[in-house]
Design a protein around this nucleic acid. Structure first.
Lengths: 249, 249
DNA sequence: CGGTAACATTGACGATGGTCAATGCGATGA
DNA sequence: TCATCGCATTGACCATCGTCAATGTTACCG
């Protein structure tokens, strides 16, 4: 049970104009500003493993992730790397006005981004406070996401952390895709390898594997293959993720 | 070895004018805007245990922490609480333009803050893009702090997490206080109780205690009392923490 | 079609740390 | 001064998880 490619590009067939995407990204913006932004946007496909942003160097672009997954990671002195943030479609990366990046950003899968060259983007922001405020709100949301991860990492048992991860992944995956599919079993794609996921959750691939199969044996989910799972009991997953831990299962 | 009061107010004897503080908070701002901000600022002393911001309700003020410690915490369905962020002097809290707070903010010790009523603060921000951009940069820094914590929580052994915590605490405590005292033993005050610290690091008070005394037995630090420690071997502490950065700032 | 590479899984074992219970210590108040 | 309260510490025990080694599975390449 192992497929070698976690890659997953939903291939949004957008032909030239990004106005729709941008409108969703920063809704309620005046028409002319949407047009100004889409004028400098460039669609880029990024092969897996590419370093999109390198720690210590000021990033030369702001990116809006459309497909695939990016990981923010930090290399420790002992050679190991730690993933400290996962970017899924609809996330933004890059820094503004704010010096060099503090972390590497690496494509964990093949990825597709809408890239804004940094300088023109900043000029547009300076010229239009509405966009800047929209961006500020986006950063505040990122901050909430980060705090959510801190909460996740506080879970003692890794099955709790894994459940939290899946809940968050589910929510973020569904985010931005129309109406919520009510209460049917939902399929989710884990966009990264076990090793990366393990680093992300502060554990090991072996423990990830065991926890996943433990969840399967509890009928919380089904493992279709190494990267596709089907959530069969979402309330149960949520319960494990943080609420209930009185009895020993 | 236990003193009941972790409280600690450095008592900045500022008499009426906050211009100096504000100038440091948002340096490079024009004089008139500093004055506009200090016009609406209010100094508040907050007793320990007070809920400064309550989850779910839009905060009615933006705060700049001067003394003491605030904790951002989340109450889980099972009644436990998790600390997901620690605010030390020079930190900012509060949300702008952005809906209700996602977490409680509680005074872990007696604390002193410079409070800006939300509405006038937002008006000043809307009227002056410089301040707004400054605030954006501050939020981006907060985001970096949060990611730093995620990295910290990824450490497998709690002695690593504790060492990371102490390194970060040291840096944040020193931040904003003049030049660095070169290589002498540094005294640091842990501003919170063992239980809170344990929740923060995703562990238990017992393990915190053991890790602290383990560090002492390695001559990395000395425990003066439950809340005051003296860092005797900073490089050693950094080495154990796994990271290699003790940035300036 | 094999063969190999890359990754996931599984099992065994030992270390780390969570849990429970008991004890120590400092502050506060009668 | 003593009693008590809140918290920190310490010790014993055992569940959990990290580590190492072996095996299973899939994709890719000759």
């Amino acid at each position: 049970m192992a497929s070698r490619e976690p890659d997953d590009l939903p291939s949004p067939s957008l032909a030239g104009g990004f106005a729709g995407l941008l409108a969703r990204l920063m809704h309620n913006l005046p028409e002319d500003q949407i047009r100004a932004l889409s004028g400098i946007a460039r669609l880029r496909d990024i092969p897996r493993g590419t370093e999109v942003v390198t720690e210590g160097s000021p990033p030369d672009e702001i990116g809006y992730l459309i497909g695939g997954a990016l990981g923010m990671q930090k290399c420790l002195p002992d050679g190991r790397t730690h993933i400290i943030g996962l970017l899924v479609p609809n996330d933004i990366y890059g820094r503004l006005f704010n010096g060099p990046a503090a972390y590497d950003i690496v494509a964990l899968t093949e990825a597709r981004v809408l890239a804004f060259p940094r300088a023109p983007f900043e000029r547009i922001l300076e010229a239009s406070p509405e966009i800047e405020r929209r961006f500020l709100v986006n950063v505040l949301d990122e901050l909430d996401s980060a705090r959510e991860w801190i909460l996740l990492m506080g879970g003692h048992k890794i099955i709790e952390r894994l459940a939290s991860f899946l809940v968050i992944l589910l929510r973020r995956t569904l985010r931005g895709s129309g109406p919520r599919p009510a209460e049917a079993p939902v399929r989710v794609r884990i966009p990264i390898r076990r090793t990366d996921l393990a680093h992300y959750l502060g554990t090991t691939p072996e423990s990830i594997s065991r926890a996943l199969h433990e969840l399967e044996s509890q009928a919380i989910l089904r493992l279709l293959n190494a990267y596709e799972i089907e959530i069969a009991d979402l309330p149960g997953l949520v319960r494990i993720s943080g609420a209930d831990h009185l009895g020993p299962e």
